[in-house]
Computed example of a mutant assay.
Amino acid sequence: MRAGALDPYELLGVDRDADDAAIKKAYRSLARQYHPDVNPDPEAQERFKEISHAYEILSDPQKRAAFDRGGDPFSGVGSGGFGAGFSFTDIMDAFFGGQAGGAAGGRGPRPRVRRGQDALIRVEISLAEAAFGVNREIKVDTAVLCETCSGSGAAPGSRPVACETCRGAGEVAHVQRSFLGEIRTLRPCAACRGFGTIIPEPCRDCGGEGRVRSRRSLTVKIPAGVDNGTRVQLSGQGEVGPGGGPAGDLYVELQVARHPVFTRQGNDLHCTVTVPMTAAALGTVLTLPTLEADLVSETSSPDMVTSFDLEVRPGTQSGTDQAIKGYGVPGLRGGRGDVVVTVLVETPTGLDAEQETLLNQLADLRGEQHPSGQLRASSKGFFGRLRDAFDH
Rank of each mutant, 00 (worst) to 15 (best):
D294S: 10
A280L: 07
N267I: 13
M304T: 10
D268A: 08
S301L: 04
L295M: 12
D294I: 08
L295G: 01
T342I: 10
M304Y: 00
V345M: 05
T357S: 09
E298A: 15
S297R: 12
G350D: 15
Q265V: 09
L282P: 00
D309L: 14
L351C: 02
V305C: 04
V285Q: 10
V296I: 15
E356Q: 14
D352P: 08
P314W: 14
D303L: 11
L351N: 05
P302Y: 02
L291Q: 07
V339Q: 03
T316Y: 08
T278F: 09
T287G: 04
L286N: 00
L332N: 03
A279K: 11
S300E: 04
I324N: 01
D268H: 14
F262Y: 15
G326L: 03
L310G: 00
T263K: 11
T299L: 13
R336W: 00
L282I: 09
R313Y: 09
I324L: 10
Q361I: 15
Q322F: 13
G328A: 06
Q317N: 08
V296K: 13
A281G: 09
G328S: 03
V296L: 15
V329D: 00
T284L: 01
E311T: 11
D303H: 11
V305P: 02
L288G: 00
I324P: 00
T347P: 00
Q322D: 04
A279I: 06
V305A: 09
G283Q: 08
P330H: 01
N360G: 10
F262K: 07
Q317L: 15
L288P: 00
Q322C: 04
D352T: 09
H270G: 00
V273H: 10
A353I: 14
L269K: 02
H270I: 06
R333D: 13
E354D: 14
L332H: 03
D352G: 10
D303W: 10
V312H: 06
T272H: 05
Q355C: 03
E298L: 06
L291A: 04
A323P: 03
T357V: 07
A280D: 05
L288V: 05
T347Y: 00
D303I: 13
G266N: 07
E354Q: 12
V296Y: 09
F308M: 01
V312W: 06
M277W: 01
A280T: 10
Y327W: 07
P289S: 11
F262D: 05
T274R: 08
V340M: 04
A323Q: 11
V305Q: 15
L358N: 03
S307L: 11
L282G: 02
G334I: 07
V312K: 02
S307A: 15
T290C: 06
V285F: 07
T320V: 13
T357L: 13
D321V: 12
D338N: 15
G326E: 09
D303C: 03
R264I: 09
P330W: 00
N267F: 06
F262P: 08
V273K: 03
E356K: 09
D309V: 10
V273A: 11
V273W: 06
T306A: 12
Q355W: 04
V341G: 01
T278W: 04
P348K: 03
E292A: 15
Y327D: 07
P348F: 08
E354R: 13
V343S: 00
